[in-house]
């Protein structure tokens, strides 16, 4: 298995009104192609900061980040931007669809940005929206969509360039349980298609979807391992639910 993402001794120190705050203190992480990694931790444990650094949205204080075998932590802000176009897709808690653009335009934007022709972009968008059951909402403004639909559009947008890495920051944080289920099912499907995913969440149900869970505490990794699978998924409810 090839390593898609590697972080070596990654550190982030903020200065908050003169006082240095250690948000991430020396994180080492290796993520292989096709892995689905959940990053868990209490709020303030530095998980959002970590994923922002991994996607170049936030600059690291020290340490190394390697993406697809290339060292990227030394890149400038615009260098990161160029890299993100092709290699990194982002999904945020607040969906962050561009409010003035239609759903279709939102999904086509990254493809256009990465150099696709308008036709290619449109085809890719039609394909993605069809897969996410959003074809008929293509011309709607994002404001008219439900939260779950918006997050699905955001997912489509993040996947538009077939990125090496999909980073998701609390993707279900603003969704009710039904929409959460929809989005999780989609993430699972995308993962089965071979997409490498790193996801920050505090929701165990969401984290349980991953192959591997990284637990952060106070900016440090306290646990990193695969979620055990006791038996093939055939067990009946009786084995997991104990009705007294």
């Amino acid at each position: 298995m090839s390593v898609v993402l590697k972080a070596v001794n990654l550190v982030k120190v903020y200065t908050d009104s003169g006082v240095p705050v250690h948000a991430v203190r020396g994180v080492d992480l290796e993520i292989e192609a096709g892995e689905f990694v959940a990053i868990m931790g209490p709020s303030g444990s530095g998980k959002s900061t970590l994923i922002h650094m991994l996607g170049g949205l936030d600059a690291r204080t020290s340490g190394e980040i390697w993406l697809d075998g290339r060292r990227v932590d030394t890149l400038s802000e615009s260098g990161w931007a160029l890299l993100r176009r092709r290699k990194v897709g982002f999904v945020f808690q607040n969906f962050n669809l561009v409010a003035n653009m239609t759903v279709a335009d939102n999904v086509e934007l990254p493809a256009l940005l990465a150099g696709a022709s308008p036709r290619e972009a449109r085809e890719r968008r039609e394909d993605l929206l069809a897969r996410l059951n959003l074809t008929e909402r293509a011309d709607a403004p994002p404001g008219q969509l439900s939260g779950g639909e918006q997050q699905r559009v955001a997912l489509a947008r993040a996947l538009a360039n077939r990125p090496s890495l999909l980073l998701a920051d609390e993707p279900t944080g603003n969704l009710d349980s039904r929409n959460t289920r929809d989005v999780l099912r989609l993430l699972g499907e995308v993962h089965r298609d071979g997409q490498t995913i790193v996801m920050v969440t505090h929701d165990a149900r969401v984290a349980a979807l991953a192959d591997r869970v990284v637990s952060l505490l106070d900016g440090e990794i306290v646990d990193d391992g695969r979620i055990p699978r006791r038996r093939p998924a055939t067990g009946t409810a009786g084995e997991v639910i104990d009705l007294r």
Partner: peptide, 11 residues
Amino acid sequence: RHYLGLMRELN
């Protein structure tokens, strides 16, 4: 990890 495994089974 055990709980997460259980959670996955519930999922």
